[in-house]
Nucleic acid binder design. Structure first.
Lengths: 221, 221
DNA sequence: ACGCCAAGGTGACATTGTCACTGAAGCCTT
DNA sequence: AAGGCTTCAGTGACAATGTCACCTTGGCGT
């Protein structure tokens, strides 16, 4: 499982002394997840801290009724603190993380984590910052869900998820899952967008036709 | 400003060695906030970590359109990590904390905080746990707002906020602010509750008449 | 008694969520 | 190529919630 020196990839480890980094390389395990795999979930709580070396994890929450909402994404170089959070507080939770691409992660056993957090200021700062970012992310989600209009939020997502050719390969159902709404709602709004020539649609595919207008909509308070 | 040894009040400090605690007592400042005062907010970001010695802080977020939603409450013995979170990540945010009762808090200067977090395992665990709890709280808020029915959520709040005589002195507007909805919606639902003899209402006051039925409603998925 | 103001009520309408269908596009198999 | 299956999307009716404009009421101070 030879990837090059991963301690170079994280701001929390990159500036540590060489001997500490060497020790880390011995202690940590490198884990891979195939695209679509569940990285963590209600039945699958890891007992160590994870750092994302490459790929992307989509963290979402779902209701009993089957609806779903994406909370945030963990990108390469970031740490996935939700798992540790849930490890600490004993409460039940229904968030899950799914590998959106192939994922390579570093898992650090709790003792190593504790020692690092104790001895290395830059590492500790990194972890606190990771927590902070997720708190802020969630504040944003609350704000959107509680106060945002669905067409505006959908426009934002389309822009977020579009590739460089302004194309998206997503189903209406998937978009509904991003926003925590129902497929029918997404369909309605997308049809409206299409009528206004903001987007084009075929089965499972959307193309942005009028970027500037869509942006204007996405930013309209 | 003589309150007795506050280090006894927090699980993160209570088990520290006596000499460390004495040092803390010298370094930390004790701050009071009158009921209704803003403890922190967009224009008022503290530069130190706060621990709540007594009282209760209501943390809420508001939209440009004037609506508001309560995210969680910080109770005595807990730490208010949101401020530090926002301190760390430079992002703008629109959460604010208001003293719901008179509040006595301990503020720890950043250097003291860093030293403690580095040297004392139990303190560090306390802080991580504080972050975790808030993350979990926010997950719950997202779940409620995204998937919950308003009548169910309102019933829950009524039960939460009622005193031991099953009375609440709140306006419809305040309840709307708790749940992130509009006053009219609260009024509608409360009138429905009243028709079903679950509650009684007078101006600015609500009394729970049928506890068990209200509970059933609050727990109905 | 009077006026003021906050609290609450009301109806009309827009947006969003739910349900029960229907239709259409892309596959597999034969 | 034809049929059949599954996933994806469209539709209309209705319920729940949010928004707006405006109206009453209760309590307070003068």
């Amino acid at each position: 499982m030879s990837i090059e020196d991963w301690t170079e990839s994280f701001v929390g480890t990159r500036n540590l002394p060489r001997n500490v980094r060497d020790k880390l390389l011995r202690e940590a395990r490198v884990v891979k997840f195939a695209k679509g795999t569940e990285v963590f979930g209600p039945e699958n709580i890891p007992d160590s801290l994870m750092f994302l070396y490459s790929g992307c994890i989509r963290v979402s929450q779902s209701s009993e009724s089957g609806r779903e909402i994406v909370l945030y994404r963990v990108e390469a170089g970031e740490s996935c603190v939700l798992t540790t959070a849930c490890m600490l507080s004993e409460e039940a939770y229904n968030a899950e993380g799914v590998a959106e691409t192939e994922v390579v992660a570093i898992t650090l056993p709790k003792p190593s984590f504790d020692r690092l957090a104790s001895e290395e200021d830059s590492f500790r700062a990194f972890v606190f910052q990771a927590y902070s970012r997720r708190l802020i992310d969630l504040l944003r989600v609350v704000d959107d869900v509680a106060f945002g209009r669905m067409d505006v939020r959908l426009a934002q997502r389309l822009l977020d998820l579009a590739d460089e050719d302004l194309q998206l390969k997503v189903t209406h159902q998937t978009l509904a899952g991003e926003l925590g709404t129902a497929r029918e709602v997404v369909s309605r709004i997308l049809n409206d967008f299409q009528k206004r020539n903001l987007i084009g649609q075929t089965r499972g595919q959307i193309s942005i036709l009028n970027m500037s207008e869509l942006k204007r909509l996405a930013e309209s308070v």
